[in-house]
Amino acid sequence: MNIGIIVFPGSNCDRDVRWATEGCLGIPTSFLWHETTDLSSYDAIVIPGGFSYGDYLRCGAIARFAPVLNSLISFVDKGGKVLGICNGFQILTELGLLQGALTRNKNLNFICDRANLSIESTKSSWMKNYKIHDSISLPIAHGEGRYQCSNDVLKKLQDDDSIALKYAHNPNGSINDIAGITNKKGNVLGMMPHPERACDDALGNIDGKSILSTLLS
């Protein structure tokens, strides 16, 4: 497995993801500058958290025009694995690779905390190390993490078994307590919680290891 982490000028969890995948799990990982277009040598791409191009408009609204994301669409079409964490999730919805949108938290404040989550689907290969209804706890840190979608989309997500993660105690007002979803095929996962912040024994919580360790070949 070869992992590429997309780096925008405002990404700030790029190093954390690499520390988790390379430092904690030993998977070869490299950074991909946002102007790159060649993704052919990677098996999986992670879009990390942060503020891509400042996110002064809508989170991810500018990032979706980045050269690297053009290539990402064909990468996904060919079945490549993509994980969008936090800002990465926002970008994936802006890009249309995932449905719905992420809006300002219900209390209008940034929320940094630990969230208890339940595994709702193991359809996606990203979730293969879990069992349905497993409970895990992951860090969250976002200002615009309230997942929203129409009733039709929600129904489609449910029918396609695309709701991957739900909050046990909804922190941000997300519809149906949704914390993470996949595309229909299951190769793209977007989630607001940060699995990469929960991979290091030294920091106490390693509940996120199971997601990133699916990349161990």
Partner: peptide, 14 residues
């Protein structure tokens, strides 16, 4: 107050 600050980023907060 402090829940509005990202105190975990950089993955070093013990």
């Amino acid at each position: 107050i402090y829940k509005q600050y990202d105190y975990q980023v950089q993955s070093n907060t013990v």
